[in-house]
């Protein structure tokens, strides 16, 4: 399953960048966190779109409809299996060869919802995409690549702000696995709201569970009990718990009626 997940993460990154062919720059919000300021971006960042609509005082029916379809189908599966910024966090964890968080921080499920509300509200008040100016994904996928792609452009204040937020984010990723997904991601908050009702779920059969705790040791979302996995807003459906479960108590579930 790990190999398959790595393959889909690479595929997510490739698909996000097929916009180097101009005709493939589409008006479709993607189901992951990727800056449409990237020179090769093919899809729109959903958070950027929501901010634009908020700033313009319009309701983003089409974008919300697409996010609804993505969310009802797979919930936060997108975070674990396709998001390029999630992939960056996994790469940092892999490079540091860390199995558990260097700093133990309690799981706080509501912070990302506050970030989402703040991002939309800030755009509406400032009539501008305020969050884009500090977004660490924008730093990595747009500001830095554009600096190399368009060397005639001058550095501005927000370029250094971007570098600062990216540096802070990378330090956080070194200390805490999937820090962005757990605490701050506004798109993660959107899909988190769909996690309890999504068709694709990760379910623990507590009748089979032997309470060994291995699943919770490897969980990048720091979920504390196997019975919480199914409806937890933090589960990114990465499947690491399924891989380590020797009693085969945890499985992917796609049943429509339950």
């Amino acid at each position: 399953m790990s190999r398959l997940r790595r393959a889909t993460q690479v595929l997510g990154l490739v698909l996000a960048n097929i916009g180097f062919v101009g005709i493939l720059k589409l008006g479709v919000p993607c189901p992951f966190f990727y800056c449409y300021g990237c020179p090769w971006a093919a899809f729109a960042c959903p958070i950027g779109v929501l901010q634009h609509y908020s700033a313009l005082g319009l309701f983003p029916f089409y974008a919300l409809g697409l996010l609804g379809l993505f969310g009802v189908a797979l919930g936060r599966f997108w975070c674990g299996w396709a998001c390029p910024f999630g992939t960056v966090q996994d790469i940092v964890t892999w490079v540091t060869r860390r199995k558990t968080d260097a700093v133990k921080v309690k799981r706080v499920p509501w912070t990302k919802f506050v970030v989402l509300a703040g991002v939309i509200l800030a755009a509406w008040i400032a009539v501008d995409t305020v969050f884009c100016r500090v977004c660490p994904a924008g730093s990595l996928f747009a500001a830095i690549p554009h600096r190399f792609a368009s060397p005639d452009l001058t550095f501005g204040t927000y370029f250094y702000v971007h570098l600062g937020t990216l540096a802070a984010a990378l330090v956080a990723f070194v200390l805490i696995g999937r820090f962005w997904c757990r605490y701050l991601c506004p798109l993660g908050a959107v899909f988190a709201a769909f996690n309890p009702v999504s068709v694709l779920k990760v379910k623990a059969d507590m009748g089979k569970c032997v309470q060994c705790g291995k699943c919770m040791e490897v969980c990048p979302a720091a979920i504390e009990k196997p019975e919480e996995i199914e409806k937890c807003t933090d589960c990114i459906r990465c499947g690491k718990c399924i891989e380590v479960c020797e009693s085969e108590a945890i499985k992917i579930d796609t049943s429509l009626g339950r």
């Binding site: 916009g19 720059k25 008006g27 300021g37 634009h52 884009c132 747009a142 554009h146 452009l153 927000y158």
Partner: peptide, 20 residues
């Protein structure tokens, strides 16, 4: 709404990413 969202992808806000 497709056209408006496509314009976000096609036309870069350089100041948003801290250039120019």
């Amino acid at each position: 709404q497709y056209g408006l969202i496509r314009s976000f992808v096609r036309f870069l806000c350089v100041t948003c990413i801290g250039l120019s």
